[in-house]
Amino acid sequence: MPDAVPSSAAVSARMSRQVSRDTAPEVAVRKLLHSAGLRYRVNVPVPGMPRRTIDIVFGPAKVAVFLDGCFWHGCPQHATQPKANAKWWRAKLDKNVARDMETTKHLEAQGWTVLRFWEHESPVSVAQAVARTREAATQPSRRPKRTS
């Protein structure tokens, strides 16, 4: 992005004010998880990666949940490409997608289960998928016990 710059200070300021945590989809999913009796932490720093956070974390189970916005994270169904300053935006949004993939690989390499959902997905189906994954992650191994 060396020769691409934001189109104006006003646009840059407006975009920097966009909500990045406690979005409506995040809150809806968290309410469903909480009402199902699941306890979690929110906006937890990614271990070993500064300036990156996980939206919902089930620490002991090592399950990380991300609820990605369609515009900022490149949803294949809903992402749009701004026409003004298109080169700068393409580079910015591509960098976001690359950072998401890097974060996922980093966490998986440390033994985490990473779940990513789009903001347009049903909070009920997201919460159900998260609950199933968390349940599976906390089940003791089902390997047969050895009897000498």
Rank of each mutant, 00 (worst) to 15 (best):
V97D: 01
W72A: 00
V63P: 04
V97C: 04
K87S: 12
T53W: 06
A79G: 06
H120A: 06
A36F: 05
S8M: 10
P144W: 01
P144F: 08
A84L: 14
R52Y: 05
P140A: 12
S7T: 11
D22W: 08
W118A: 02
T104N: 09
V44Y: 04
R39C: 05
A86P: 09
W72L: 01
A24F: 12
H106A: 10
V124Y: 02
V29R: 06
E135Y: 10
S125C: 05
G74W: 07
L33E: 03
R39N: 08
A127N: 08
R146H: 14
I54F: 00
T53G: 07
P123M: 03
T138M: 14
E119K: 04
M49Q: 04
T138W: 06
L38T: 02
A9N: 07
R14N: 04
L93K: 05
K31E: 13
D55F: 01
C75R: 06
L115A: 04
I56F: 11
A136G: 15
M15V: 14
N43D: 09
E102L: 14
I56E: 06
K31C: 08
V42W: 07
P82S: 07
W72K: 01
V65Y: 03
W112F: 07
D3M: 11
K92R: 14
G37A: 13
R143K: 08
R99C: 04
V46N: 05
H78I: 10
C75E: 08
K145M: 15
A127F: 09
A98F: 00
P50W: 00
H73V: 03
R39K: 13
A36S: 14
P76I: 10
L93T: 03
L38Q: 10
N43T: 07
G59L: 07
I54K: 00
F71R: 00
W72M: 03
R41T: 11
A61C: 04
T103D: 09
K105E: 13
A131Q: 01
H120R: 04
K31H: 13
P47I: 01
K83Q: 12
S35H: 12
A9P: 07
V44D: 01
W112E: 00
S35Y: 09
T138F: 07
A28W: 01
M49A: 06
V65M: 02
E108C: 09
K92E: 08
G37C: 11
W89S: 03
L38E: 08
V46L: 07
R52T: 01
T113R: 14
D100Y: 01
E119R: 05
T133Q: 10
T113W: 11
A84S: 13
N43L: 03
A136R: 15
F58K: 00
